[in-house]
């Protein structure tokens, strides 16, 4: 905690959890989906589903998906701006129990028809936790440089990736591995203290059984 957690963030109202946090969930979904989704479906859970209109949670998530930050004054016009940007959207209220009361599940389809699922929860004060990427349950907050590395669960992948980071002087703050089952689909989530250059991201993508590497810049 520092002084700017208390006097801050600078944000568009009315609610840090229902508005600022919602923008951030959208921001991350945009990056994970490859930068420019053309059609999105957003499922809202719990308090998000109950009060999304009054808090502008719908406008906030769409703004994030369009690449806006929580202090962007265009957030209140984002639904119209989505049309101009060629992004269609649909909201659904879910009555199912979610991992957290303020949760959104975003399915984003890109120009090539590829679908990406990102689920995030707004946990207070504008801070968020991403808890699902496609079919894999994960957990990260977006406060570091975060690498998402989907791969096939095989021996040596973590060693190869972490060696590349070490060779480029990048320190790992946290590393987590999630997998559907032994030898199945897996996801490495690596949070680093330093920025990861595009060339390092490409080198990671060249590691055997790594399918992709997505870098998310810190969102706070």
């Amino acid at each position: 905690m520092n002084v700017f957690d208390i006097i801050g963030p600078i944000m568009v109202g009315p609610s840090s959890s229902h508005t600022a946090g919602a923008v951030r969930i959208g921001q991350i979904a945009r990056v994970v989906a490859g930068g420019k989704p053309v059609a999105v479906t957003i499922e809202l859970y719990g308090s998000f589903a109950q009060t999304y209109k009054g808090h502008g949670t719908d406008k906030a998530i769409i703004a994030g998906l369009l690449g806006m930050a929580p202090d962007d004054q265009r957030i209140k016009d984002s639904l119209a701006l989505a049309g101009q940007a060629g992004m269609s959207f649909k909201f659904r209220k879910s009555s199912n129990q979610a991992v957290h009361p303020n949760t959104a599940l975003i399915s984003a389809v890109d120009q090539l028809g590829k679908k990406t699922i990102v689920q995030g929860s707004s946990v207070g004060g504008g801070r968020i936790v991403v808890n699902r990427i496609n079919e894999i349950n994960v957990k990260f907050k977006g406060d570091y440089y975060t690498l998402l590395i989907p791969h096939t669960d095989t021996p040596g992948v973590i060693a190869a990736v972490t060696k590349l980071l070490a060779d480029h002087g990048i320190n790992i703050a946290e590393l987590n591995m999630y997998r559907s089952h032994r030898g199945g689909e897996a996801m490495m989530v690596i949070e680093t203290d330093q920025a990861v250059k595009a060339e390092v991201v490409s080198l990671i993508e060249a590691v055997k059984t790594v399918k992709k590497a997505v870098l998310i810049e810190p969102i706070y």
């Binding site: 208390i6 006097i7 801050g8 963030p9 568009v12 109202g13 009315p14 609610s15 840090s16 209140k76």
Partner: peptide, 21 residues
């Protein structure tokens, strides 16, 4: 009121109490 109308404010310490300080 600016906060309620989706205007830009500084959470101080929260958005709901942003007018006081």
């Amino acid at each position: 009121e600016v906060n309620a109308c989706m205007g830009r404010i500084v959470a101080a310490p929260t958005a709901g109490s942003c007018g006081i300080i």
